[in-house]
Design a protein around this nucleic acid. Sequence first.
DNA 1: GTCTATATGCGGATAGAC
DNA 2: GTCTATCCGCATATAGAC
Lengths: 192, 192
Amino acid sequence: MFRRKGYYDTSMADLSAACGIRNAHFYYYFKNKEALMAEVLRSVQQFTAERLQRYAHDESRPPRERLARITRFFERLYAHATDPPDATASPPAVSTGGAASTGAVAGGCIMANTTLETASVPGEFTPVLKTFFETWVAALQHLYRTKYPEAEALELAEATVQDIEGGLMLMKLYRDKKYLLNALKRSEKRLD
Amino acid sequence: MFRRKGYYDTSMADLSAACGIRNAHFYYYFKNKEALMAEVLRSVQQFTAERLQRYAHDESRPPRERLARITRFFERLYAHATDPPDATASPPAVSTGGAASTGAVAGGCIMANTTLETASVPGEFTPVLKTFFETWVAALQHLYRTKYPEAEALELAEATVQDIEGGLMLMKLYRDKKYLLNALKRSEKRLD
DNA sequence: GTCTATATGCGGATAGAC
DNA sequence: GTCTATCCGCATATAGAC
């Protein structure tokens, strides 16, 4: 819910309805809405970091292959999620880039969404969000490092993250995975 | 206000306070908050489209120069805006990429922010948002077209927009312009 | 066109029985 | 640990005098 609708537009009523529990139950386990959200972000951060570290540093495989696993991971994380019953047939909307258009879509990145929604004034979420992106960049940099010098590898890693996050935004707008998929493809090409 | 705090977290009270008028005045000129936002987006869209078209099709200058003007335009549009009195000294946070870190920052793209906040279910804003990004992509594609074939120029244009928008997100999180500036630099390199 | 006052509903959060 | 009932404040929006 937070990923799809954002933090402020998601009400406790939305959440309890989605969970099939009573509104008040949340307040037994969490201090308030903010703490609940913080826990969601922490959980996503941790899950992602674990995977990224595992894949990026798997010395038993060549870098190209490790990157491919990371790509698959993000493709699922960001585009596999199914948004429920609003599945209206989506018009392809516009332009056909490197990849062909790919039907209905849901997904997105709760970390980026939350960043844009809340990062004006630093607040409680900022640290987890920063950690998330730093881990991601570090993992990519580690892989690009096998082909490029330190500084260049960092810039490529940052460029990849930006490309993907921008792609997720366009994916949401046009309901077309191709923006994400193209970005992922470009991230792999950088290692060829 | 909408750009900084987002649509849902911005109250009519915030807006009227910022404008130095009474809350009720808005309802004389606009049907409701949504209509007010729609007008803001329409205005930004129109302003941007006018500039983009003018710069991209200025046949009196070489493509490289036209792109440079577009770059400067977006640099101002996205990073020049000054966020008011919350100017706390910002720690550089992390990594130094291609460009050196550049002090305090404000800015961002209201169109991307609004997309992520509201585009789950299409709603009223979607058309303006789409137009905005289509115009932007088209302008860039027109310039890349001078060096690349149609399809490739389109993909580069989309990649540039994604890179920049992702950069704006990181810029907001780390309060560091470098992510935007690096993306703009990369967009120019693609024409060299 | 601008003001004051206020209606109305919803969102976050709590009380307290069970 | 789960339930029902409810408080309280704020946000959108309107009424109606001036």
